[in-house]
Amino acid sequence: MSRAALLVLADGRFPAGGHAHSGGAEAAVKAGRITGASSLEEFCRGRLHTAGLVSASLAAAAVLGVNPMELDAAADARTPSPALRVAARKLGRQLMRAARATWPSVELDALAREFPKGAHQPVVLGVTARVAGLDAVDAAHCAAYESVSGPASATVRLLSLDPFDATAVLARLAPELDRVADQAVEAAGRVVDHGVDALPSASAPLLEIGAELHAAWPVRLFAS
């Protein structure tokens, strides 16, 4: 594997549209559930072990060569909120564009043809990691990290939170993030043998409910 390729892919400045999404933080801030660094940390921890674990497992399974169509359908089943399905496909399509320009490959071209309106972002992330020569555990780390870095940077903008506090939250979550990435890789291994039903489906009711509330707001800063 190339460790530097992982840095390119995981860089918050990788131009794949993530900056416009808050990962549910905007809805949680509005509802008064995120008010500072400690509630941000609990938010991120909950998201990491639910949506983050599912995304990391999808991405890891895609690296291992599991059929993206099946992974995408499994992602749909694990995303009851239509607002989140739309956001995941939008982000998937944006990542696809950035990935194809960054790591041109027939595999990404084929994925783009199969999903002209975008596949779920973690599936695209996994295929991207694969063509960039990365391993399943790298893709899992990347997905798990994105599941918490998005809400953290959005909260800096939404609450004018001290950016050092937000970054310290991410650092405190690092050991758990490593464990989630390992769990995701184990799950992805089971998917290779037993099919996509072996993917975790950990859910967070308030992320789903909050996403639907957020999508109905007439005025908001973030796309999701």
């Binding site: 900056h19 416009a20 564009r97 950035a98």
Partner: peptide, 15 residues
Amino acid sequence: ETGACPHTAIRDDIS
């Protein structure tokens, strides 16, 4: 939607 950063959406990440 620009996530509170309109310049990012037109310059740094145009996706």
